[in-house]
Simulated assay, not measured.
Amino acid sequence: MTSISKIALACAALVAASGAFAQKAGDNIVSIGLASINPDTNVGPLVSTGAAGTPNAVAGAFNASNAGLRGSIGSQTTVSFGWLHMYSDNIGVELSLGIPPKLTLDLQRANGTTEQGAATVKSLTPAVIAKYFFNTPQDKIRPYLGLGVSHVSFKDVSPSAAASIQALAGNGASLESTWAPVYNAGVVYNIDEKWSVIGSVAYLPIRTTATFLGKTGPIPLAPANGVTTKSDVGLDTMDYVIRVGYRF
């Protein structure tokens, strides 16, 4: 056997011996990319009370005017980050977070009228996700399944200036923070031992309560002071993410 052949075989043996692309025990992978946020919105019945916290005639009329109200939120794209630590060759835990996207809420009334851009809100959904990776660290392609939890919070809720929205929430609006499960699936393509491309989809069934403080004073649809309105809100959210990862 020639010396060149011996060197080639030695190199091949070395690669085979060391030969893991990524996602092996002890690895840390940081990643950055884009996430498409797609909430399916469900606004429950709105229940209004008077200034003293008890139903009154005005609150009752306001409840009737908002009967059958529905909401929708369009999709938004934001920057997404991840930090994955591998505890074994197949099991890892990732901290996932992103720049809070600005979501726009449209409202549809039972009479067919629509309140475009009724409010905007920023949502924060940092999550911790346990992931199981299929195949081995030597494989370029590694599908995975994940299960985790997200702490969901909302900030900068801004109602529009429309008279009907001011009647509902002219003195402010808020959404309660909540916890939501995260169901996750994805695939990693290992470019080399350091770099990878990750594509994933996650489902978050978010449940929260919205509180609206009606504007005081004689304005259309709210000719009285201090009407407070609450509603249960569901945000069944699909997140589609693509990132570039680096192992260290």
Rank of each mutant, 00 (worst) to 15 (best):
I7R: 13
I7S: 13
L9P: 06
L9Q: 13
A12E: 14
A12T: 09
L14S: 06
L14I: 03
V15N: 12
A16W: 07
G19M: 04
Q23C: 09
G26N: 04
D27T: 00
D27H: 00
I29W: 02
I32W: 07
G33I: 10
S36G: 06
S36Y: 03
I37N: 07
I37C: 01
N38Y: 00
T41L: 15
G44H: 07
G44Y: 07
P45F: 06
L46E: 05
S48C: 13
S48H: 09
T49N: 14
A51E: 06
A51T: 01
N56W: 05
V58R: 03
A59L: 03
A59S: 15
G60Q: 09
G60D: 11
A61C: 04
F62N: 05
F62W: 03
N63I: 01
N63S: 03
A64F: 03
N66Q: 08
N66W: 00
N66E: 08
R70V: 01
G71Q: 09
S72E: 11
S72H: 07
S72T: 06
G74E: 15
Q76D: 12
T77Q: 07
T77E: 08
T77L: 05
S80L: 12
S80D: 14
F81P: 04
G82A: 10
G82D: 07
W83Y: 10
W83L: 14
M86V: 04
Y87P: 07
S88V: 01
N90A: 09
N90L: 02
G92Q: 07
V93G: 02
E94S: 06
E94W: 00
E94C: 01
E94N: 01
L95A: 12
L95C: 03
L95F: 10
S96D: 14
L97Q: 04
L97I: 02
I99T: 09
P100F: 02
P101M: 15
K102N: 12
L103V: 02
T104N: 15
L105I: 09
D106Y: 01
D106V: 00
L107N: 07
Q108A: 13
T113G: 11
T113Q: 14
T113P: 02
T113E: 14
T114G: 10
T114Q: 10
Q116Y: 10
Q116M: 12
G117E: 09
G117A: 07
T120A: 03
T120C: 07
T120P: 06
